[in-house]
Amino acid sequence: MYSIDFNIIAEALPELARGIKLTIFISAVSSLAAFAIGLVTVFARTMATGPYGTAGAIYVEIIRNTPLLLQLYFVYKALPDLGVQFPPVVCGIVALSIYTGAYISEVLRAGINSVTNEQYQAARGLGLSNLQAFALVVFPQAIRVVIPPLSSQFINLVKNSSLVSFIAVSDVFYVVYKGAADDFRFFEFFITGALVYMLLTGFIAVVSNIIEKNVRVPGGEARI
């Protein structure tokens, strides 16, 4: 009979801690990079003229309509064929940033579309450049509206970061999977892994709630 024995987790604790640290590191770096990519893409799609908008749209559609696992494999296994080689952790960060960046740009675009056109026209009328109107007038209003969907993208990013274990990165999922398979202790390791991810994503949810409360436009609730 199978009996639950959590001592096995205590023994695996140092390795788990290393895995958690790596997951947090990959998620944090990818979050920043993905936000930057999303920002550039959304600027290209809503503000820039010329071919940039089309390029942004093609990027978003390709990335959103193919599985992340394939994109990870592509960066890790196919790019070396073309002479581009990164260490596994970098591959994971690159693929996760590009993937999440496409989703973040869509979230930001929804926010920007919720800011009325008059705001932009007034900004341009006051003599601001296209970039200034975006950065100083439209974007600050847009970002407040999209904090909840934005935070769910970061939550998805943390969960998706578990896939880097399939390109030889020993993140927390890798440690949990390996521990479970080696000792044949699936329940203990599953519960541990699930708790770790719930804590990480819960942390993001709490922080986003606090930010949302603090940056809310006073009196803005009634309009939305």
Partner: peptide, 13 residues
């Protein structure tokens, strides 16, 4: 709040 891959692996194994 749990990754899908955790479900697949642990439901199967």
């Amino acid at each position: 709040s749990i990754p899908l891959i955790l479900f697949i692996v642990f439901i199967h194994f």
